[in-house]
Structure formats: C-alpha cells, structure tokens
Amino acid sequence: MAEHIMVLPQYGMGMQDGEIIRWLKAEGDLVAEGETLVEVEAAKTTVEVPAPVGGTLTRIIAVEGETVDVRAPIAAIETA
C-alpha cells in the first residue's frame, strides 16, 4: 500500500489559494478516482475537487474553513 498526498489543484491562472468549504467524505471512507471529495471556494466560485486516486481517505490535512495555498497538501489517500 502507498500513501498519496492530495494537493489543492489550481483552477485558472489567477488562483493562488482556496477555502475548504465542505468535505464530502470522512477519514476512513473509501473513495473512487474522480469522485468528488471536497468543495473549495476560490475566486468567489465553488469548485468540486475530485479524488486523484482511488483508495481510503486516511487523513484530512486541511479542515473546513481553512484557506490553503494552491498545491498545498489537503488530504492523504492510501492506495492498494
């Protein structure tokens, strides 16, 4: 098993950070690649961020209400 660190992706050239609005999964939940995992507000719009890999969400690094920089770690997913 390997741990994949999920980072906040950049949606558009001007995006520098985003606020974590809501996690749709909890630690310990199974996630499928491409499944919406978290909602982020960036540049006055809400975007749904999909899981980059399938596996188990083992750790939420960025909590709801926290503002994080683009490419900063937000979660860890354990893959098979």
Score class of each variant (00 low, 15 high):
Ile60Tyr: 09
Val53Gln: 05
Glu64Phe: 08
Ala72His: 06
Gln16Tyr: 00
Val70Asn: 02
Ala51Phe: 11
Glu66Thr: 14
Val7His: 02
Thr36His: 04
Ile5Phe: 03
Arg59Met: 11
Tyr11Arg: 02
Thr67Phe: 03
Glu41Gly: 02
Tyr11Asp: 03
Ala43Leu: 14
Glu35Gln: 15
Leu30Asp: 12
Ala76Arg: 14
Ile21His: 00
Met15Ser: 02
Thr56Val: 14
Gly14Trp: 03
Lys25Glu: 04
Ile20Cys: 01
Ala43Glu: 15
Thr36Val: 09
Val40Trp: 00
Arg71Trp: 12
Ile21Met: 06
Thr58Met: 12
Arg59Leu: 13
Arg71Cys: 02
Gln16Leu: 05
Met15Asn: 04
Ile20Phe: 04
Ala42Lys: 00
Glu64Thr: 10
Leu8Phe: 10
Ala51Ser: 15
Val53Gly: 09
Gly14Thr: 10
Lys44Asn: 07
Val38Thr: 02
Leu8Cys: 06
Ala62Thr: 12
Thr45His: 07
Gln16Ile: 08
Glu39Gln: 11
Val70Asp: 06
Ala72Cys: 12
Leu30Asn: 14
Ala75Tyr: 08
Gly12Phe: 07
Ala75Thr: 12
Val38Asp: 04
Arg22Ala: 05
Glu41Met: 13
Asp17His: 07
Glu41Asn: 03
Ala32His: 10
Pro73Trp: 14
Thr79Cys: 06
Asp69Thr: 15
Leu37Lys: 07
Val68Glu: 11
Thr46Val: 15
Leu8Asp: 07
Ala51Leu: 11
His4Asp: 05
Val7Ser: 06
Thr45Ser: 14
Gly14Tyr: 05
Pro73Gly: 15
Ile74Pro: 05
Val63Pro: 01
Glu35Val: 06
Thr67Trp: 03
Gly18Leu: 02
Val47Met: 14
Gly14Leu: 06
Met13Glu: 11
Ala32Tyr: 11
Gly34Trp: 09
Glu78Val: 01
Ile74Leu: 12
Asp29Cys: 09
Ala80Asn: 13
Ala80Leu: 13
Val63Gly: 13
Gly55Thr: 00
Gly65His: 07
Leu30Pro: 06
Val53Thr: 09
Arg59Gln: 14
Lys44Glu: 10
Lys44Tyr: 02
Ile74Lys: 08
Ala51Trp: 00
Gly54Pro: 13
Leu37Tyr: 03
Glu3His: 03
Gln16Met: 10
Thr45Asn: 08
Pro50Ser: 04
Ile21Val: 15
Glu64Cys: 01
Ile5Asp: 06
Glu3Leu: 12
Met13Ser: 04
Asp17Phe: 03
Glu41Thr: 03
Lys44Ser: 13
Ile21Glu: 02
Gly18Asn: 01
Thr46Asp: 02
Arg59Ala: 12
Leu30His: 15
Lys25Trp: 04
Gly12Val: 05
Gly55Phe: 01
Arg71Phe: 14
Thr67Asn: 07
Leu8His: 01
Ile21Thr: 09
Gly12Ala: 08
Gly34Leu: 08
Trp23Ala: 00
Ala62Glu: 12
Gly18Ser: 06
Gly28Asp: 06
Met15Thr: 08
Thr56Ser: 13
Val70Pro: 01
Ala43Met: 15
Ile77Phe: 09
Thr45Lys: 10
Ile74Val: 14
Val68Asp: 08
Gly55Val: 00
Glu3Gln: 11
